[in-house]
Amino acid sequence: MFWKPQSRVWYAVAVAGFGIALAVSFFVPANIPGFAPGEIHSIDYPIDPTNYRIVLAAVAVVMVALYPLSYFFPTLRKRLFHKAQFVFAGALTLMLWDLLTSKLFVLRPPYFPGPVSILAYIPSNWFNLLSHVGASSRLFIGGLLLGTIAGIGTGILIGWFRQWFYWLFPILKFTGVVPATAWMPIATVLLKPAPVAMTFLLVIASWFIISFMMAQGMESTPKALYEVSETLGAKRSYQLFHVAIPHALPSIFTGISTATAMSLLTLVAAEMMGATAGLGYFINYSKTFNKWYQVYAAIIIMFIAFSIILAVIERIKQYALRWQKGLVS
């Protein structure tokens, strides 16, 4: 698992990497073209490097502090040493990014803001950003939840009853082939207020794949499992809830994972088009005002927020499929 060289040298190098990045931030002068170094000029993006330096220093300090601690936790030590090279590469990337943008202006603002600008922006506007995260999350969770419920419901119907399959499956297939974003103009016109329209789009995005996977999982149940329950005295309803649906559970979660990705895609696209809040809206809004550091900040926040959502779904999956542990890797 931790196969990288277990050497403290790489760990030291990684810490040093952050030192170098700090040194670059402190000692390389900002060579703004057209201005002499140090000359005051008018700019419309944050350039205060304090937050950036704090982050670099904090990482270095944490790494130094973890080192003696790692003597008591062998797994932690292995993990730290395993990750050392990557952390070092991360430090170098930050340094290079800082150098190319804020220092040498090879990559120019406003399209390429440095880490300095982004990190200066985020903490000073955290409340604003958080409200957008909240708006996005609410929509996303609501849409995915409704889509999952609808998907599982229709999945059971088409997977268990021939009549439902006959009537419902073609419709389902239609909504599955057409991307949810194609409905956006119709939804935004017909469904008011905007969150309702977007929830509808998210439901469309997740409904098909979840119900499809659900039905497929039920249909692939081995005949022997039904026959066993039959010889044990089970009725049809018992077979549905205790054989077919449990057997479909791994498939459902495959469906939910895919639906999550599709929903996030639809969410951001929909927010960019017709919302007044949310991270997608914020990105679009920032672009309009040429505040590209806000766009990058929103992307980073998006990464963090969506990672948390995915981690929660993964946890639920692991709990629901705990009987599979060791059966599949």
Binding site: P222, L225, P246, H247, Q324
Partner: peptide, 8 residues
């Protein structure tokens, strides 16, 4: 093959 319920 027993046909046990793997989830149970």
């Amino acid at each position: 093959q027993g046909a046990l319920y793997p989830w149970s």
